[in-house]
Simulated scan of single mutants.
Amino acid sequence: MTATPPTTTARAPRRTVLIAYGVLIAIGAAFAVGAAVSYPLLLENSQVGPGLMPLVAGSALVLVGLLLVRQELTTGSVLEGDGAAVDTSGEDIAKRRRTHRKLLSVMGLTVVAAALIPVLGLLPVMSMLVFVLSVFVERRPWWQALLVAIAAFVVAYVIFVAVLMTPLPFGIFNPDVWSRL
Rank of each mutant, 00 (worst) to 15 (best):
M1F: 15
T4D: 14
P6Q: 15
A10K: 13
A10Q: 13
A12V: 12
P13A: 13
R14T: 08
R14G: 08
V17A: 09
L18M: 09
L18W: 11
V23P: 10
V23T: 06
I25M: 14
A30N: 01
A32D: 01
V33I: 08
A35P: 00
A36C: 12
S38N: 06
Y39N: 09
Y39A: 09
V48M: 11
G49N: 09
G51P: 00
L55F: 12
L61F: 09
L61Q: 07
L63P: 11
G65Q: 08
L67H: 11
L68Y: 07
L68G: 02
L68A: 07
R70Q: 13
R70S: 10
T74D: 12
T75L: 15
G76E: 03
G76I: 02
E80A: 13
E80L: 09
D82A: 07
D82Y: 04
G83A: 06
G83S: 05
A84E: 13
T88R: 11
S89R: 15
D92L: 01
I93V: 15
A94K: 02
R98W: 07
R101A: 14
R101M: 12
L104T: 01
S105R: 02
V106C: 00
L109M: 09
A114N: 07
A115W: 01
L122S: 02
V132F: 11
V135G: 05
F136H: 06
F136Y: 06
W143H: 10
W143Q: 05
A145Y: 04
A145C: 08
I150S: 06
A156T: 07
A162Q: 14
V163L: 12
M165V: 15
L168A: 00
G171W: 00
I172F: 00
P175V: 07
W178I: 09
L181R: 08
